[in-house]
Design a protein around this nucleic acid. Structure first.
Lengths: 294, 294
DNA sequence: CATTATATGTCGCGA
DNA sequence: TCGCGACGTATAATG
């Protein structure tokens, strides 16, 4: 058996279970009524309530409630978990140094405590990242502009590394900033900083072009680009439930990942994906839909 | 009993438990060997391994391994959880629409499945936010500059809302951008955008000042500020484990929260906080310290 | 350790 | 819903 659980333990029994789990380096979940205090980069206090506490062997602590993806309180990896019984109550403290911060969970009641060994396999592969977009564009530089010649990626400048640097058919330097999704003003500013840096490098007479490559831009970002005479080239976002969805090649060499539809700004188009799923026996649980959300 | 658990269930037993838990709107944890596939904003695939799956009644799904604060895979709130047994294996799918994305967890073995009702009390109070800093500065505008007169917060402009807007003793418009922690180039760009927007508003002759207020700046950011003739005023970061740590006033009016030490760039100072904690019986589990970390 | 940029960022607020 | 910016952002890469 690789998972041990105690139900409705006394606080002292819970402490024993925690000691064992710490010893084994297990992943721990504790469910019960508790209060939570955090002090460190900020300070926060959480009144009593029923919550789920997750303690990882790497020092991570997470306090989850019934909603939201982010824990309501947490402690980063590298913290040290401490457990004690104080005034007859289980208390878990996770302490981190540099930055100094502490998370304290005080349990009124412990409903359940589980410990289990988990394997931290790191074989996650993600496609559709900015790096994927870059590789795809290196394959077909003409999609940025006919005659564009890539010269370097991550080219260092005074203002930081440029995603993609090259020259156009006239030999003018071109700074390309890549974004995997719709961009706002900050991306335009970022591009502008890089262009300015290259202009300082190359000399004032050099007319350096800046091109933002992304699926789309917001109005404000578009205005900012125009202000600084920067350009925009549209590429399709990563094709998720589309035609390129079968490339789950985990064993093969990830040589040429083309997770992006590379199309240039030609037209609007609808991509309706069908999700056919007929299931044997199924249970659907979920969203309150419209019950009192916000 | 508010927490139900099944150990080493058959896949079909696990499905029944899930159905019940969905019905009740419980928070669910499933531990077992599984593979995970995500497809949506990006695409990812995770090989078989022992992991913890958390399903929330608001549609959130989290897949956690033994390390890292962030789940290795997840699905945002608003998703719909589906469970089914397929080929004799438990399969959980969380489906989200707009953006369309799907998380699929296929279990080889289910070690444990727990369901519990949780209370989503939202009485979290955090001090040390940017809003706290703003309030503190409104109390003592002279800390930005002697004679500075605040006129508006969140003042709207073409480039977005300005944190704090006012005039100096000469009547010149002043744009103040607040950051609660050390800032990089993006903050300088942001301030620059706001200053430019005000200059367009007020007319070209108006010499609009821009002041970045933060604990400190990076070198690159400082250079950017200088380039655009923007200014910097240092304030101390929120005092965490310092002298202002006792203000956990949850009942009282949060009228004047001064979670910031407002000091202007004068000197370094040490704030050594003492954390005295003597514990009855204690268990410390944690960080492998130096075992094979990275 | 500090700086920098990415992210399936997440989240809340406001138009 | 989208746009925008803060966040105890987290995380990885790099000097």
């Amino acid at each position: 058996m690789t998972a041990t659980t105690v139900h409705q333990p006394t606080h002292r029994e819970a402490l024993w279970a925690l000691e064992d789990a710490f010893e084994r380096g297990d992943l721990i979940t504790v469910f019960g009524r508790c209060t939570v205090e955090y002090d460190g980069r900020a300070a926060s206090s959480l009144g009593v309530g029923r919550r789920l506490l997750v303690l990882k062997p790497d020092g991570t602590a997470l306090v989850h409630t019934d909603e939201n993806q982010k824990p309501v309180n947490w402690q980063p990896p590298g913290s040290e978990h401490h457990a004690a019984v104080r005034d007859g109550r289980l208390r878990v403290r996770s302490v981190h140094t540099s930055p100094d911060e502490t998370l304290a969970v005080r349990f009124e009641t412990v409903e359940q405590l589980s410990a289990m060994s988990v394997s931290g396999r790191r074989d996650l592969s993600v496609t559709g990242s900015e790096a994927d977009l870059r590789n795809a564009l290196l394959d077909r530089p003409a999609l940025i502009e006919s005659g564009f010649e890539p010269l370097a990626t991550e080219r260092p400048t005074d203002a930081g590394p440029i995603d993609l640097f090259g020259r156009d058919s006239d030999g003018r330097p071109v700074v390309v900033e890549l974004k995997r999704r719709r961009v706002g003003p900050s991306a335009a500013s970022q591009l502008q900083r890089y262009v300015a840096a290259i202009e300082r490098e190359e000399g004032d007479n050099a007319a350096v072009r800046g091109i933002l490559v992304a699926p789309s831009v917001t109005d404000r970002a578009r205005r900012l680009l125009a202000e600084h005479e920067l350009e925009f080239v549209a590429v399709e976002p990563p094709s998720s439930t589309g035609d390129a969805g079968e490339n789950n090649t985990l064993d093969t060499e990830p040589a040429e990942t083309n997770a992006f539809d590379l199309a240039v700004d030609d037209s609007a188009h609808d991509s309706a994906g069908d999700a056919t799923g007929n299931d044997e026996s199924e249970a659907a649980g979920t969203v309150p839909a419209d019950e009192e959300s916000n």
